[in-house]
Amino acid sequence: MSHAQAAPTDVVRVIGLVKRYRELVALDHLDLAVRRGEIFGLLGPNGSGKTTAINCILQLLSYDRGTIELFGEPMAPGRYDLKARVGVVPQQVAVFDELTVRENVDAFCALYVRDRRRRRQLVDEAIDFVGLGDYARFRPAKLSGGLARRLNIACGIAHRPELIFFDEPTVAVDPQSRANILDGICRLRDEGATVVYTSHYMEEVEQICGRIMICDRGRAVAQGTADELKRMISLGEKITAEVGELSEGTLERLRGLSHVLSADCADGMLRLTCEASAHNLTDALGVLTAAGVRLGRVWSEPPTLNDVFLELCGRELRD
């Protein structure tokens, strides 16, 4: 599968997007720019506005205010020329149960490509791309969850869209299928497609997305590469140590170190969170050694995207 190359530009540009449901503000002056040829991650808790934003961009939802451009042109409900350049892989598997794998991919491709010979070639390529060649005559009910997700992807990309939206494409699939899907998304990017990717799996987003936007309550709260986002938060390092007995006094001395944000000990495991500093580990080990604490394994970890997400969006549960 290949895509025509074009001059570098923003494939998606959203300015001041507002969407209200009566009193609820689902999107609150959201700005968004996605560059050609990148995988752009869209993160946020449930109800943050991710799916609403995508549906507005695709003109599946009306909105109250704002401008949306795709490929440098104003997007509107009647712009079928722009819509034909876009592919969508929804969160729920959306295929026809009574059709085979091949018939499903052909049905979706036929929405954009009328020439049968051309379509046959595109359908073959899409099925090969997601590794479903051995299942082409199966009906969806016979496929595992991971294979059904791959069929969903084939249906969304068969017409070779330049811009593809993936909404939680790896929910409830096995690790092998997840790896296959992520590899496929990276191959689409390498072949020229632009990808907007939403997921709850932080490690996936960190693995494949060049830039990431974190949304909360309809607004963008942070944007940048994974490394840039990690530098935005106070947490710089997490230190974990297997310890024997640890007195409250030693714990208080650890909490009193200049760059320590928190220190807790439970079930023989000491956990420190620290600001960025070159001396966190040596300072902590100095306190523990002076107190005669018996140590097992000790390890240090940099912050993860999940730490960024929890610090920026809070830890309370969302519906």
Rank of each mutant, 00 (worst) to 15 (best):
G286C: 07
F71G: 03
G133D: 13
A26T: 08
A154D: 08
G78P: 02
S300G: 07
V308I: 11
G133Y: 00
D81G: 05
A126Y: 02
D216C: 07
E103T: 00
L285D: 08
R150L: 09
I212R: 04
V101D: 03
A226M: 04
T100S: 15
V260Q: 02
L99W: 11
R255V: 03
L32K: 03
C186V: 10
C274P: 10
L229K: 07
A278N: 14
K142T: 09
H3V: 15
R271N: 12
S2F: 08
R22N: 14
E203T: 00
S199G: 08
A136S: 01
R116Q: 10
Y63H: 13
V130Y: 03
A33V: 15
L229C: 13
M1V: 13
S300V: 15
Y135H: 14
L42H: 08
S144Q: 06
Q223M: 10
D64W: 05
E242Q: 12
G16P: 05
D307C: 11
G16K: 06
S48D: 07
R231M: 04
E191N: 13
M202P: 06
Y63N: 01
A158D: 03
L285Y: 12
S48E: 08
E168A: 07
F165I: 12
C186E: 14
T198K: 04
R117P: 00
A4Q: 13
V18K: 06
L317M: 09
A148N: 08
E191V: 06
E98L: 06
E316G: 00
C265M: 07
L58R: 02
L61M: 11
R297F: 04
V25R: 07
P169W: 08
D190I: 03
A126C: 10
E206S: 15
L70D: 04
R35Q: 15
M232T: 14
A76P: 01
A148Y: 00
D128R: 14
A154S: 04
C186R: 15
L82H: 01
R255T: 02
L27H: 05
G210K: 09
H3G: 14
R79I: 02
T250G: 04
G268C: 00
C186D: 13
D267Y: 04
S62W: 00
L32G: 02
D264F: 04
A107S: 13
P303C: 13
A158K: 08
G131D: 07
D183G: 15
T250E: 06
L60H: 04
E73W: 07
V93A: 05
L163R: 03
Y63F: 15
I239S: 02
P169Y: 04
V298Y: 00
A158E: 06
K142S: 15
A266W: 02
D216A: 09
G286R: 02
P302S: 15
D10P: 06
V171S: 14
R65G: 05
G256W: 01
A276H: 13
D81N: 10
A276G: 11
E311N: 14
H3W: 13
G249Q: 11
D183K: 15
D10K: 08
V171G: 01
R120Q: 12
V86S: 04
G244M: 01
V298T: 07
T170P: 09
G16S: 12
L61D: 09
R65E: 10
L24C: 00
A222P: 10
V93N: 09
V195Q: 07
C274W: 00
D174W: 05
I157G: 05
